[in-house]
């Protein structure tokens, strides 16, 4: 047991503060963008503002405030918030769509070029995004990397940044709410979510049995942390699954309504005219 100083979940020092401030600035920019849209008469649901702001607030809170529990549990709570909860809230608010609508023509063209560039298209291929996210997680907890982050501030900063960015990338790719060049089918995205969820659950149980190499957390602490990872991960996976399911349901509804209209206009009375 090397004491709680081994890993302080908070305060995070420079990287945490930089990411947190960036998140809060992003929230301000989002609200400015949605206000601009509404002022010119466009519709932009209020709940998306709340969703994005909440995501940024979760990110900032997890990086700046001290979290309860032993050092490993607190670390896990932080990772859960910055890599899973915050990304779902941020991605659910469709930030790219808002940016593309709110920006003036010139920067919008630049952004669109970046969003439709080959590297961006490759990165949002769901299995690759999952590999970057979960692969990084496995490296962190199953190699001495995790112990290393306690001694090397630069490594610590890089890991933090990777966790946040890869969490956002994974959620963005699997949910596919924003316009990207290549649309991936439901089967690709659902299978990716299934595989990623499996890797997450297996890693959590492996951590329950053996904590990351080179660390010395108490058994109670590492058990609590591993279970938090397992069940917390479940919760966010279900939210992502619901997002995908609602997309499918809505798309099906549009097809259904179209066929009904066509049937009515050609005079063949459909059985489902009582629909709605």
């Amino acid at each position: 047991m090397s004491g709680p100083h081994l890993h302080d979940a908070a305060p995070q020092g420079v990287t945490g503060t930089v990411i947190a401030v960036t998140a809060l600035l992003a929230a301000c920019a989002y609200l400015a963008g949605s206000t601009r849209l509404r002022l010119r008469g466009d519709a932009w649901p209020k709940w998306r503002d709340a969703c994005f702001t909440a995501g940024c607030a979760v990110l900032a809170y997890a990086l700046l405030a001290p979290l309860p529990g032993g050092p490993f549990t607190a670390h896990m709570a932080q990772h859960l918030m910055i890599a899973m909860v915050a990304p779902v809230l941020v991605v659910g608010a469709r930030p790219l769509t808002l940016l593309l609508r709110a920006l003036p023509v010139r920067p919008r063209r630049t952004l669109l070029a970046v969003a439709h560039s080959t590297p961006a298209t490759v990165l949002v291929f769901p299995p690759l995004a999952a590999l970057l996210d979960l692969g990084g997680l496995w490296l962190l907890y199953r190699t001495p990397l995790f112990a290393g982050t306690h001694h090397q501030p630069l490594l610590h900063a890089a890991v933090h940044l990777h966790v946040v960015v890869s969490g956002l990338l994974f959620t963005f790719a699997v949910c596919q709410l924003d316009p990207v060049r290549r649309r991936w089918s439901l089967a690709w995205r659902a299978t990716t979510l299934l595989a990623a969820g499996t890797a997450h659950a297996v890693l959590a149980k492996a951590l329950y049995a053996t904590p990351p190499p080179g660390t010395a957390f108490t058994t109670a602490d590492s058990h609590a942390g591993a279970q938090l990872m397992y069940y917390g991960g479940d919760l966010v996976e279900v939210v992502i699954a619901v997002i995908i399911a609602v997309q499918w349901y809505t798309a099906g509804g549009r097809v259904h309504a179209r066929r009904r209209r066509r049937a009515e206009s050609t005079g063949t009375a459909p059985v489902t005219s009582a629909f709605h």
Binding site: L194, G197, E237, A245
Partner: peptide, 16 residues
Amino acid sequence: LVSDGLLHTAELLGLV
């Protein structure tokens, strides 16, 4: 362990 993780995730996604 792997089959357990797969089944557990499939259960959640299957419910949705």
